[in-house]
């Protein structure tokens, strides 16, 4: 399993208005992580809008370090272009910025994908994890831990 890229600093509700998209066609997205058992560390996640970006072959829309202080954690994105998106996330329990793995490469920190798409000895695929973001308000919940 590839480790997620290392990110520095917080990304707070950045506007990612794509060129040529009119204001009334933009979308917002509330992403909520639920089921958190360890109220420590950060959730490191990427929001992508293409299969290439999902497979780390293009840049993500956003890369976030979301501090965990309760059983849920939420981040809102505004000014998104409507389309298909996906999220890959892991709970960085020890705060070292990396998804830790055992000597055989199996993740030792919790991870999750949008749509709660399942891993089966390899990450969930874009087809299973991607979801529609429509113009206006959107919400997406992911169970992690």
């Amino acid at each position: 399993m590839k480790s997620l890229p290392l990110f520095l600093g917080l990304v707070l509700g950045i506007s990612v208005l794509a060129p040529g998209v009119r204001a009334q066609e933009t979308a917002s997205l509330d992403v909520t992580f639920a089921g958190l058992k360890a109220t420590q560390g950060v959730i490191m996640f990427t929001l992508v809008n293409s299969e290439e970006a999902y497979n780390d072959k293009a840049k993500p829309v956003a890369a976030v370090m979301l501090p965990v202080a309760a059983a849920t954690a939420t981040r809102t994105f505004r000014g998104l272009a409507p389309g298909r998106y996906a999220i890959k996330a892991f709970h960085d329990l020890n705060g070292d910025g990396k998804m830790n793995a055992n000597p055989f490469g199996i993740p030792t920190e919790p991870f999750a994908f949008s749509n709660n798409a399942v891993a089966n000895m390899s990450p969930a695929k874009w087809a299973a994890a991607s979801f529609e973001v429509k113009a206006g308000a959107n919400a997406h919940a992911i169970t992690i831990d």
Binding site: N100, N102, P103, F104, I106, T108
Partner: peptide, 8 residues
């Protein structure tokens, strides 16, 4: 050991 979770 904490780094040896899920090992065979």
């Amino acid at each position: 050991r904490d780094d040896l979770v899920h090992m065979p």
